[in-house]
Each structure stands twice: as C-alpha cells, then as structure tokens.
Nucleic acid binder design. Sequence first.
DNA 1: ATAACAAACGTTATATTATAACAAATTAAG
DNA 2: CTTAATTTGTTATAATATAACGTTTGTTAT
Lengths: 134, 134
Amino acid sequence: MTQKQEHLSKNQQIVLSIIERAKGPLKAYSILYNVQKRGIKAPLQVYRALEKLIEAGKIHKIESKNAFIACKNSDCEISKTTAFSICNNCEHVKEIKNLKLSKYLSNFADNSGMKYKKYNLEFFGLCKNCKIKQ
Amino acid sequence: MTQKQEHLSKNQQIVLSIIERAKGPLKAYSILYNVQKRGIKAPLQVYRALEKLIEAGKIHKIESKNAFIACKNSDCEISKTTAFSICNNCEHVKEIKNLKLSKYLSNFADNSGMKYKKYNLEFFGLCKNCKIKQ
DNA sequence: ATAACAAACGTTATATTATAACAAATTAAG
DNA sequence: CTTAATTTGTTATAATATAACGTTTGTTAT
C-alpha cells in the first residue's frame, strides 16, 4: 500500500485538470493561457507543475511535439516506460497500452552492456480516419 | 541503384561534417558556433541544413535532447525508424542497430487500426562505464 | 504548539530553441 | 539558354524553457 500517491499542490492540480480535460496534448504556453484566470501568471509556474506531474506519472511529455498529455495508463505506477501513436495528419495522439510491447521493450538488451530502466517510443502514421480520407 | 544519394549543398556539407566529427549529439546553436568560421552566420542557415540532412537520413534528431547526431546505420536508407540508447549519467548517446528490434517495431500493430511507418525510440539508463563507477 | 526543515510559490529577467518573411544567388532540367 | 526549383543570406521575431531570489506554505520531530 505504499503507493506513490503524491499529494498534489494547488498549482499542480490546476495544471493537471487542464491537461486531463483536453482532447489532445497541450503545449506549455497554451496551458499558461488556460490557467491565467485561475491565478497562474508566469511560465515558470506552469513548468514547475509540469515537472512534478511528470515525476508523479500523472502526465507525459510528447517529445516530438513539446506537448503534454494526461496518463491514461492507470497501472503504470511511475510510468517510466511510455509509448504513443501519433497521426501525422490530424495530430491525434494516443498512449499505447500493450503488455507485449512493454514487456518486449523493458526486457530489451543489446550487446552494449547497458540495462534500460526507462524508454519513450513514438510511433507515427495515419490514424484510421485520416487513412480513409486520403 | 536508385539510391536517394542526394547531392548535398555547401551548407549542408559543412553542417554534416561538424556533426560527423563530433563524439556525441550536437545542439543547433553549438553547431552554429562551430561553423561561423566557415561563413555560416545565422541560426536559420543551420536549421535549414539540419532539416535537409534529416530528410536525407544523414542525421537524426535526439528529441529528448534537442540535439543532432550522425546516422551510423549505413543501411537505413531513409531511416524513418530510429532507436537510441542514452546514458543518464554521462549523456552518451548511441544509435541502436538491432534487426530483431526494428523488425518487431516495424511490424507492430495494435487494435487502433493504425499502421505505423515511422517511429523513434529512446532508451535511458546507465552505460557500462557509469554503472561501474556508481 | 513550535522550531526546523523541505516543498511550493510568486516574480522578474533571461537563456535556449526554432521559424517567418523576403530578396538574391545558385543549381537542375527542359 | 532559360525557366523552374532549390539554396542562400539576412533581419526580425516567435516559441520553449530555466536561473535566481526571496517569501509562503506544509511537514516532522520535539
């Protein structure tokens, strides 16, 4: 029962709620714009909250987009292993939850003698909808 | 024999040669600093060269670091599928060339109906050297 | 409760990364 | 050659992210 169920601070809660309500990944300055009515005025306040939320596994950063998305994988406790599918057309992003994939990658070892504790995988392609339309 | 053996322009050659000589990934503004003696004066000249070099598969962007590294996988013709190992301590970055891994990921399909043509995978951990020292 | 410490906050300034817009020069293709 | 496409040079500016500092709030141990 020693869940890392962090208590979230006020700013962290505000930022998280914006990200959770969003349909897709949000950029930091777009978050900032959205939370100004709630008293958060400066970029740094947003970035600090983002940092903590990432540590807590509540959100992930989509590196190729510099954007942030809520974690839907409730069982990835600290979620150091992430995979996303990204549509090149409509920009839709979805976290991939696939046990085989995550096992495969978590156990991956090459001949470098390096053991990996963390990875981030971003797949790109056309989503079902956009494939039809084109 | 229809290799996409692009002719590289002057600026593209200059930027590529800097990246190829480097021991690790280089940041755009560090590249800029390195090529100023060769007549490239502005960020945009560097970014334009980087863009073309990525398209040509000569270099890759390490998204988590906003840095650029030469492609050592001579057989990845356009290299839309990339994997890297990154040491969290010494920051050493190495492109992973592993046929099983690339086959596995290239063939990966989840239930979303999305077919992936491109991916980028970044593994994090401690390299052999840093593991010993700690 | 309160002292001691850690975490979060607010604020200003600034660093870092990346692109827009436009005109001139160079290169490739018919 | 000449037309089209690409690359270049240049200035300005947008977008993303962190440094530094002092204050406030929250936690823990006595």
